[in-house]
Amino acid sequence: MDLFKIDPGLAIWTWIVFGITLTILWKFAFPALLTNIKTREKTIAQAINNAAQIEKRLSAIEEEQAEAIQLSKAQASEILRQTRNQAENIRKELLAKAEAEAQDILAQAKIKIEGERVAVIQSIKSDIADFVCDAAEKVIAKSFVSKDDRIWVKKLVETL
């Protein structure tokens, strides 16, 4: 079988064909292709680098955002606490004021009621004295009650 036959011609032609192919490719095709591949690799590396930087910035922004949110929350809760305190103080003040006013009104009312009570009692006593005098006059059918007597009776009734 001629596959095992030594054929120097074919061996030399193999070298020549391979050599020519290699030379042509090395000189004309590989530089452009390898440059293109390198450019792409650089572009990809740059894109990855940019993406990493963007990610870093994003995470920094996120951290800042989280900090700001936390700060805002703290401030909000502080404001809320202060507002609650103020509201509580105002409520207490208002309540105290209202209570004081109520007490005042109550005291005035009591004084007024007392005054009116005294006046009413006075009036009742005066009416009773008059009534007593009128009744006495009718009983004895004689007007014995002078003006001075009436005053005297009234004073007597008032002392009761």
Partner: peptide, 19 residues
């Protein structure tokens, strides 16, 4: 030898197409 030439031709065509 013809197949070697064909291989070389195909490789060259592929590379120059790529280029």
């Amino acid at each position: 030898f013809f197949m070697l030439l064909l291989s070389a031709g195909l490789i060259l065509s592929l590379f120059f197409y790529g280029k």
